[in-house]
Computed example of a mutant assay.
Amino acid sequence: MVTALLQIFIVYMSGSVALLADTIHNFGDASTAIPLAIAFSLARRKPSKRFSYGYGRVEDLAGVIIVFLILFSAIVAGYESVTRFFSPQPIEHLQAVVVAGIIGCVGNELVAQFRMKVGKEIGSAALIADGYHARVDGFTSLAVLIGAAGIWLGYPMIDPLIGMLITVTILKIVFDTSKLVFTRLLDGVEPEVIDNVKIIAESVEGVCEVTDLRVRWIGHQLHAEINASVEPSLSVEEGHEIANAIREKLLENFFYLSGTTIHVDPLTASGESCHCGHKNLEKIRGKQKNILVAYSQ
């Protein structure tokens, strides 16, 4: 926000549309921190009877708001660039424009390093992505310097062209960010996380196999549901100890793991398919098939 405020003053002095696009982008980035801060604040609340998993999903909703804020900044920047392309205006105070570009580059890089550091510490993919987003913003500020150099060399049309280039960059960020946000909303998880959880769980002494595994993000916290098969001769107490050993080992390797649901099965009847009788399972599948046929008709 400090970077954007310094830049807007120079935009008023110089009339540079490339700098205006960069400034709008920085204002948009500053505003994205607001819903994210609210989400992190709500996520600290304890689970309730209505929200038994807590309020971590608010972070994903904040991600949707962030996507639309960035998209709005791209639309405004693009409109101003196209307008200036067809209605060119003289650019003044080129030295000030250069200073503003440098301010934007340095300011965004400092924010990028801070966001990525904190994101890695708390396991927030959204915050890490936001850090890379800020780093890209620093590169767009460098584009402003190219525009200023073009004007100085006698090519004033470079200024609105740089503004359009910045707009395209913002749209690319919108696309990448929306993929991350909507993947989380649909309980999508990186495949390597699933593989690592399975390897760690199966490495625990007494675990014969992990038959079923589901992992999902709730905000920046990870939740795992595991079906682990053990020797059928073990007692309930021994099975319980193995489940605790799985949980402890996962927590050692995934500091952002908030909870685990571990179901211990005998090796002779492992997996969720064994929790329901074959006759009942066929009935359920038959009902599902009838529902799908009726829906299609």
Rank of each mutant, 00 (worst) to 15 (best):
K46A: 10
L69H: 05
R84N: 12
K49C: 12
S48V: 06
S73I: 05
H93P: 09
A74H: 03
I38Q: 05
I38S: 04
L69R: 05
A37N: 10
I91E: 01
S73N: 06
L42H: 07
F85P: 03
L69F: 04
L42N: 07
R44M: 07
R44Q: 07
I70Q: 03
F86N: 06
P88K: 08
T83E: 14
V82I: 11
A30L: 04
V64T: 10
S81A: 13
K49Y: 13
I70H: 00
Q89R: 14
P35A: 10
I70M: 05
K46V: 12
K49N: 13
R50Q: 13
P47D: 02
A33W: 12
S73L: 01
L69Q: 07
Q95K: 15
R57Y: 09
A77P: 03
F86P: 02
Y53E: 06
R50K: 14
P90W: 08
F72M: 12
A43N: 00
S73K: 00
V76A: 14
G78P: 04
R45Y: 07
S41A: 14
P88R: 09
L71R: 05
I91H: 00
A43H: 01
V58L: 06
V67N: 06
L61N: 00
G56C: 01
S81W: 07
L61G: 07
V82S: 06
L94H: 06
V82Q: 04
P35M: 08
Q89F: 11
V58K: 00
R44S: 07
K49G: 12
I34S: 09
I70G: 00
L69E: 03
A77W: 05
A39Q: 06
A77I: 10
H93D: 13
S41Q: 13
S41R: 15
G63P: 03
P90N: 07
Q95M: 15
S87K: 15
S31I: 14
I38L: 13
R57W: 06
S31K: 03
S73T: 07
Y53R: 01
Y53G: 04
G54P: 02
G56W: 04
I75Q: 10
Y53I: 07
Q95D: 15
I91F: 04
P47V: 05
R45N: 11
L61S: 05
S81T: 05
P35V: 05
L42A: 08
S48T: 11
R50V: 14
F86Q: 10
F86W: 08
V64E: 09
A39C: 03
E59M: 08
L36V: 12
S48P: 00
A33D: 15
E92L: 14
I65V: 11
R50T: 15
A43R: 03
F85G: 04
A37T: 14
D60W: 04
R45K: 15
Q89C: 08
S31W: 10
R50H: 13
P35N: 12
I65D: 06
Y53T: 01
L42F: 10
E80S: 10
A43P: 04
